[in-house]
Simulated scan of single mutants.
Amino acid sequence: MKIVLAAPRGFCAGVNMAVDSLDLTLEHFGAPVYVYHEIVHNQYVVDRFKEKGAVFVESVDQVPEGSVLMFSAHGVSPEIRRAAAARNLTALDATCPLVTKVHLEAIKYAKQGYTIVLIGHQGHDEVIGTMGEAPEAIVLVEDEADVAKLQVADESKLALLTQTTLSVDDANRIIEKLRERFPSIQSPPKGDICYATQNRQDAVRTLSAEANVVVVLGSQNSSNSARLRELAADQGKRAFLVDGPDDLDRNAFCDSDTVLITAGASAPESVVQATVDWMKNEFGATVETATVREESVEFPLPKPLRQIAAAK
């Protein structure tokens, strides 16, 4: 067996920032620290933080008054911020700056009287947060069929935004349909799909040509990880999305396989290496790394945590 390790893979700048933020918050304030939604969509990361004293909640009402609450990397609506303030919580915001960009765009277009078409997945934490910025102005579109059914009051005042973790190809198909139906639709000068999502998809698209099996490390509720598995399957490969090696079935592989291994933007490198070790042990696999693009993006900690870090 031959393993091709895709690069880039794994943690993006936004996930690194969110994980570092929660680590520092636990260290400074002590347990428990409450987190609104999973800090990132990865079971290994969430379980590690639970062991350290993080408590993940789905409602601000679950947080005792006066406690420390962190908003996850996916962002939250103004309603959640107001609820946190009403409970006198010390609120720390680990929202990815690229998600914040989409929120600000939504606010801008809504103030200008636009109807906003948001391309995304119903119920995803990021979509819920973005729609909460201007619920009366935003319409969610999940696929091309939704575009065909779309009815808007004023076609001359229409703007589009996207969830940051979509499939680039899927989003482009939907955007193309929107532009066909509504030629004057506005969009931000720079697209919303995040650099890391795009880079990991580009790596799978390029490198899957040399493999017959693709293993994506990531959790089932991770949108960007799920898109990687779908992309590999669309390339005609046997493709698996798993949290780690414990989820792999030896019978799904052959000694002669060439396996491309990648990881979604919220999957830790330790899980990648554990999967590589499993394949080495089971199949005597050899490993090579194939780099499609270098990444050097870094996001600073939220301002209150920068001050805490500086005082250490």
Rank of each mutant, 00 (worst) to 15 (best):
K50H: 14
Y44K: 11
P268S: 08
S67H: 09
T162A: 13
E282T: 12
A203S: 15
R181K: 09
E27C: 08
E288N: 08
V35W: 08
G218Q: 06
L207I: 07
L161W: 11
V141R: 04
E133K: 02
K50I: 08
D23H: 14
I119T: 02
L98S: 09
V271K: 14
L178R: 06
K280G: 13
E230C: 03
V271D: 14
P268I: 09
L228D: 06
A18W: 02
Q201N: 06
F11H: 02
E294N: 15
G10M: 05
P302Q: 11
V60K: 11
R306T: 07
D246M: 07
A137I: 01
D93N: 12
Q235W: 00
A73N: 11
H124M: 08
L260S: 04
C96F: 05
T162W: 05
V215R: 05
H37N: 06
V213Y: 05
S219L: 05
V57H: 05
R227K: 10
P245W: 11
Q273R: 14
V272D: 06
R48Y: 14
I308Q: 07
G236K: 08
A153L: 09
V40E: 01
K2I: 00
E51F: 07
Q163Y: 00
P64R: 10
K52V: 01
N281I: 02
Q186L: 11
L166R: 05
H37P: 02
I175V: 15
F29Y: 13
I80Y: 12
A211H: 01
K312L: 13
P97N: 02
A196S: 06
P78R: 01
A6F: 12
I119P: 06
R181Y: 03
A310R: 14
V99G: 03
E38F: 03
L248D: 06
